[in-house]
Amino acid sequence: MHVWNFAPVWANADLLALGLLNTLKLTGAALAFGIPLGLVLALMRLSPARLLSWPASAVIEVFRTTPPLVQLFWFFFALPILIHVEMTPYVAAVLTFSIQSAAFFAEVFRGGIVSVERGQWEAARALGMAPRQVMRRVVLPQAVKRMVPAFLERAIELMKTTTLVAIISYADLLFQTNEVAQKTFRPLEVFTVTALIYFFVIFAASTLVQGVERRLAASGEGMAR
């Protein structure tokens, strides 16, 4: 009968806290790059110019159809040799997750833009607006409000995916958990605590997202019309 002893875990709480901080840092960085990149990819994909839409489609398909861990390994182990650059786990992680989340965000953007009714396009064009003005003043503002829930959900997915960086030895929460487990010989307690930390953080975020969705739906601006 195993006797649970969480004391060693609390003793190393600072290591775990550092890990959590790094997880959040990584998630934030990937979002900061991924969202604008996702918008660019979406607009390229919607462009009538094939020179723009094909490469964008290719990037989106490749990054959605290959496992994130394979992408991470490629960026960490293969890319540095190919372009003769030093690669740290953090840089490889930010690079991988920025592009990967951009690929998913691009689809969210595209869905949102396409969901704005034709009549809005027509009215704006009938006023004499150039296509870029139409996008900026009329279509995107409406699309963005509808896409907020999907964005938040993808952001939460991203936070879960960041655990992969532990495998390439970036000091995120999971990596730190492993370190502490090996140090204290208490894998059961440590991993359980970490699982609970992830659960509470992500659950809180999910609940927030559901709240946002409910409020948006109430004000008539959700996706369902």
């Binding site: 009549g119 809005q120 027509e122 009215a123 009938a126 006023l127 004499g128 150039a130 009329v138 409406q142």
Partner: peptide
């Protein structure tokens, strides 16, 4: 570009109004 300029001189009112909701 030319069509955009034409539409600045010719106004249209739609059956479905198409007001900008935001």
């Amino acid at each position: 570009a030319e069509l955009t300029r034409v539409r600045q001189r010719v106004g249209m009112v739609f059956q479905q109004f198409n007001l900008f909701p935001h």
